[in-house]
């Protein structure tokens, strides 16, 4: 299986704070990889580095063979990124958001139609987003990321703060997207149930380090746990 994302000994310091302490991982084509960890463990920093938004202090990052920070422009058409706390422009409609991002990525009307379908907002897509609920905004933002069918989708807490029904819709949309396009997806979350349900492989991140990695079944077996929460408790108990 082809490796799409590869990180080797990646470190990131913010002044004296070490946000990442030597992360190494590789993600294959068509794989959904879950990064699980508590707040401040380095999940967002890791996704920003893979996206090319920030530069690692040291270590090597490759996305489809290219360093995303150095080859930022070249990697844009392959990488889709949904930040954790992303929001919409209040004075633009959902459709105008799709139109704006279609222009930025040089997409056609078919792509916008696909975006409308992904957002699943019916006629509300033409309303200004200041009237949208949190769930509607999140679906729209996910559509903005996926409508251009990126080979790599980085989704930071895609369902954080959403109700069960909306979270379910988003998880299904992600699964459907991977099935249709064969893209590689990294989902960061502290919702263990979500990760268990969606991801093929999981990496547990704690204090800037990947402390455990494998399929959900492998991790449950290795740590004799009933769920990922128990795995996490055992692992972080060991290292802290």
């Amino acid at each position: 299986m082809k490796t799409i994302i590869e990180l080797r000994n990646v470190h990131k310091n913010y002044g004296k704070i070490e946000a990442l302490k030597g992360i190494s991982l590789s993600i294959n084509e068509g794989e959904i990889y879950g990064i699980v960890g508590p707040n401040g463990s380095g999940k967002t920093t890791l996704l920003r580095i893979i996206c090319g938004l920030i530069k690692p202090t040291r270590g090597e990052v490759r996305v489809l063979g290219l360093n995303p920070y150095v080859y930022f422009d070249e990697t844009r058409r392959y990488i889709g990124y949904l930040p954790e706390e992303a929001d919409t422009y209040d004075l633009l409609s959902g459709f105008e958001h799709l139109h704006l991002y279609a222009k930025l990525y040089n997409l056609n009307t078919e792509d916008i139609k696909y975006g409308v379908e992904l957002a699943a907002l019916d006629n509300r897509i033409y309303d200004l987003t200041r009237g949208y609920s949190k769930g509607m905004k999140r679906r729209l933002l996910l559509a903005l990321v996926l409508m251009r069918k990126p080979k790599v989708a980085l989704l930071d807490e895609p369902t954080a703060g959403l109700d069960v029904h909306t979270s379910l819709k988003i998880r299904r949309a992600i699964k459907k997207y991977v099935k249709e396009t064969g893209a590689s997806v990294i989902i960061s979350s502290h919702n263990m149930l979500e990760i268990e349900e969606v991801c093929d492989r999981v990496g547990l991140i704690f204090k800037g380090k990947i402390v455990a990695e494998g399929t959900v079944e492998e991790l449950l077996r290795k740590y004799s746990a009933r769920n990922l929460e128990e795995v996490f408790e055992t692992v972080t108990g060991e290292v802290s």
């Binding site: 422009d73 930040p83 992303a86 929001d87």
Partner: peptide, 14 residues
């Protein structure tokens, strides 16, 4: 502050 800049920064818009 409104959390709209990160997606734009990640886009091809320089």
């Amino acid at each position: 502050e409104r959390k709209t800049i990160e997606m734009l920064l990640a886009s091809p818009a320089g």
